[in-house]
Nucleic acid binder design. Structure first.
Lengths: 147, 147
DNA sequence: GGATTTCTTGACACTAGGTATCACTAAGCT
DNA sequence: AGCTTAGTGATACCTAGTGTCAAGAAATCC
């Protein structure tokens, strides 16, 4: 009777993925996946806690976020003020464009700075393992609105 | 009688800078600058609190770190585990190379990704304001030691 | 279908990192 | 030396997140 998979193909896919990996599909996990799917784009743990309400304990929300992040179903976004938010993760390594005006987040497509970084780091004798990059700016809508 | 400016030209410069900007040179601020200068390279607020001991209150340590960061005398380093550390800041915008093995931090010289970012972001309609980049890897010493 | 096993949960206490309040202190000016 | 105001420290508080553990519920086995 509920909205099944009408609004949430990602929820279904995530449940499949977790089930296949040996995780139990518990009521709190299902509710959290639904709540995440209903979030605007990215969310903080606190927002998710309020979204699911008292039906799911606080610790479980954090545990589930961590688990989903480790399984690459979610990715972290570091907002400009330093707080951590989460959003559905498409693929592997990628970066984010964060609009400082409306908060919207887009994936940054086509970034390939690894080779540049490796070259620059070599000047200091470093071998690069990884990097963390977030880009802040203003999205097309906000620029149009403010112009 | 104390070690005056023998070990700490940066301390002296920082005191000048603060004084010129209208900040009072209080005992806690002097002690904190000395303690920071005696830190290995980068430090967490907690390490600094312990370094100065009970002579300076916890709130004052955080306030002073924030003030020095706003004045660009310190810069933030986001370590791989997400914790924030601080170190003397040389110039304006720059990035860090963090050794994941020994924790050492170097400034990344010559990074100029702004134009690349601006071009990539434009594909999503974003105008880039700024970015945050930290690079993780292993320094020459650690690689030599582990080889 | 029912018992079993093991994963998961929720409540709670706790930690780390940082901020707000506010009476009191002391820097710097004159 | 006295005044004014910035700065301090104690304390309480806050956010974000983790560790513990008894109780509950998936999935499996029979």
């Amino acid at each position: 009777m509920s909205s099944q998979s009408t609004l949430a193909p990602r929820v279904h896919a995530a449940e499949q993925s977790l089930g296949a990996a040996g995780y139990r599909l518990t009521r709190p996990r299902r509710e959290l996946l639904r709540a995440i799917a209903a979030m605007p784009d990215h969310f903080t743990p606190d927002e998710l806690i309020h979204a699911v309400g008292p039906a799911v304990g606080r610790a479980t929300v954090f545990r589930t976020i961590r688990m989903l992040t480790e399984r690459d179903l979610l990715c972290r976004v570091r907002l400009e003020d330093g707080t951590l938010a989460y959003r559905w993760s498409g693929a592997g390594h990628h970066h984010h464009l964060v609009c400082v005006s409306c908060g919207r987040v887009d994936d940054l497509q086509g970034c390939d700075i690894d080779s540049d970084l490796a070259r620059l780091a070599a000047a200091s004798g470093f071998a690069v393992d990884g990097h963390w990059l977030e880009v802040y700016g203003r999205c097309a809508d906000c620029r149009a609105r403010e112009a």
